[in-house]
Design a binder for these strands. Structure first.
Length: 471
DNA sequence: CTATGGCACGGATT
DNA sequence: AATCCGTGCCATAG
């Protein structure tokens, strides 16, 4: 059962639903591309770059209705506010503060990555390569990746493809290693290739990157191990090796808004779509949830089109009607997406406050279905909203949003602690007993599985580390 | 004989 | 309908 707020009182079309669904599924990076391509091919869609109300021209700092003229849109045409950070502030009691100003925490603009790279390259570049290198550096996205394949670059610059490849090769091997590759996978591969040592882990790591990248991102070590014919621990070590020594987002390592992958911070495989931080402006312990939007500015149906439509009494060419309809649909779907993500986060933060603040142990198991019912959407909607997105926690960890629905996380964390504090290595059976006393009922076999996931060696091999200290 | 990991099954989740 | 997860049974290593 769907319960959708339709702001302009129009009947919902199946197209609307379909598109809302597909937009929900996208991560920010993907959504950005989507918005850009939509803008490119639909003249009726307009992006107002500034954060200025298109009606009263005042500068705006909040999403939602314009506080000055208090109108949501021109006519009843929807407008969606695409601040780089849409913020909401949830305090302990779960109530929202609306006076939080997202613009107070603007990110410092990154320095020019291009000049930094060019300086290093200067010696190796032929004069005719220079222009090409410039072009390539200019077309990198925020993460330092090249969206277009070399063939396209070659055509755009009218250069031979061999030259393009040569320059790309050079660029990918100077300081932010793996720059100008097509994505995290290739970036990691280049970095691994250039790493001097690594031994056996390196071999496994190489295969992980080549053949099992998506599984690696999902941390399905057991699955990979099975298919590779290696033990889970080996795979786990290789994955650790990758995240300790390599950086999937080269442009973020030296500058930019991203966080550096830090030792002890596993899973830095995504740039966050959402961040949760402590409040700085309020001195209470409220949490600030920021939902990053892909582009900044207002997205709306171009008012000129709208006016023209009125003047013609709706008697427009099919093409124009099509454009206006499509633009309006797109904007509404985006609103829907933002709305859903907001609601989801609001609930998650309220429910899982303990987890966010105190750590894995306090995650309260919750299924997507429960959350769906609470919000009043179909459970598949939640699945889509949660998939493919990453959230940055106050402590700096960047984790997949689906982590909130990991039923076994708290138990695994408890097991980790039990092992850490054990004086003599405990067998799985003994761990089961301890857990049962705390009201956690699990089978012996399950403990073994969790141990494996966490990379804890069996009791036998954990033998005396003098004073019970494990590394 | 005991602790552990592999395989596979069933029920829950997506 | 497909996938994930906890668990039981069994072989094996120590």
């Amino acid at each position: 059962m769907f319960q959708i707020q339709d702001q302009s009182q129009r009947p919902l079309t199946t197209a609307h639903l379909a598109q809302t669904m597909s937009l929900l599924l996208l991560s920010n990076q993907e959504l950005k591309d989507k918005v850009i391509s939509e803008l490119a091919e639909n003249p009726a869609l307009e992006l107002v770059e500034e954060n200025v109300c298109p009606q009263c021209k005042k500068r705006l700092r909040q999403p939602g209705p314009c506080p000055v003229c208090s109108r949501k849109s021109e006519g009843d045409e929807p407008i969606v506010f695409l601040s780089p950070r849409v913020a909401q502030n949830t305090s302990r009691d779960g109530r929202r503060h609306d006076d939080f100003d997202p613009m107070d925490r603007e990110i410092v603009a990154p320095e020019s990555l291009a000049t930094f790279v060019l300086e290093q390259l200067a010696a190796d570049l032929e004069p005719e390569d220079r222009k090409l290198a410039l072009y390539i550096l200019a077309s990198l996205d925020d993460d330092g990746f090249l969206q277009d394949p070399p063939a396209i670059i070659a055509r755009m610059t009218r250069s031979p493809i061999t030259q393009v490849n040569r320059v790309l090769h050079l660029i990918s091997r100077v300081d932010p290693l793996g720059l100008a590759t097509s994505g995290p996978q290739q970036a990691l591969q280049v970095q691994l290739e250039l790493l001097p040592n690594g031994g056996q882990k390196r071999e496994i790591a190489k295969r992980l990157l080549e053949d099992h990248f998506s599984e690696l991102g999902r941390r399905e070590f057991d699955k990979i191990a099975a298919r590779l014919g290696v033990s889970v621990n080996r795979v786990r070590q290789a994955a650790e090796f990758i995240h300790d020594n390599l950086n999937p987002y080269p442009a973020r390592s030296s500058w930019g808004s991203g966080r550096q992958p830090q030792p002890g911070n596993p899973e830095v495989y995504h740039s966050p779509d959402i961040s949760i931080t402590h409040s700085t402006s309020h001195d209470d312990d409220s949490l600030v949830v920021e939902i990053f939007a892909p582009v900044s500015g207002w997205l709306r149906v171009n008012p000129l089109f709208k006016k023209y439509q009125e003047r013609q009494n709706g008697d427009l060419s099919e093409e124009w009607k099509e454009h206006i309809e499509r633009a309006s649909l797109f904007v509404k779907c985006l609103q829907q997406r933002n709305n859903t993500v907001c609601q989801v986060m609001e609930n998650l933060v309220a429910q899982q406050r303990e987890y966010i603040l105190k750590g894995d142990r306090y995650l309260r198991p919750m299924t997507r279905a429960e959350l769906a019912e609470k919000i009043g959407v179909h459970e598949s909607t939640i699945s889509r909203a949660v998939a493919q997105k990453a959230v940055a926690f106050p402590d700096g960890r960047i984790l997949p949003l689906s982590r909130f629905f990991d039923r076994s996380l708290s138990v695994r964390d408890r097991i980790k602690e039990i092992v850490r504090n054990e004086k003599r290595p405990l067998t799985d059976e003994q761990i089961v007993k301890i857990l049962r006393k705390e009201g956690i009922k699990v089978a012996r076999r399950t403990v073994a599985k969790y141990r494996s996931i966490e990379g804890i060696l069996p009791a036998r091999l954990r033998h005396r580390d003098s004073k019970g200290n494990h590394r």
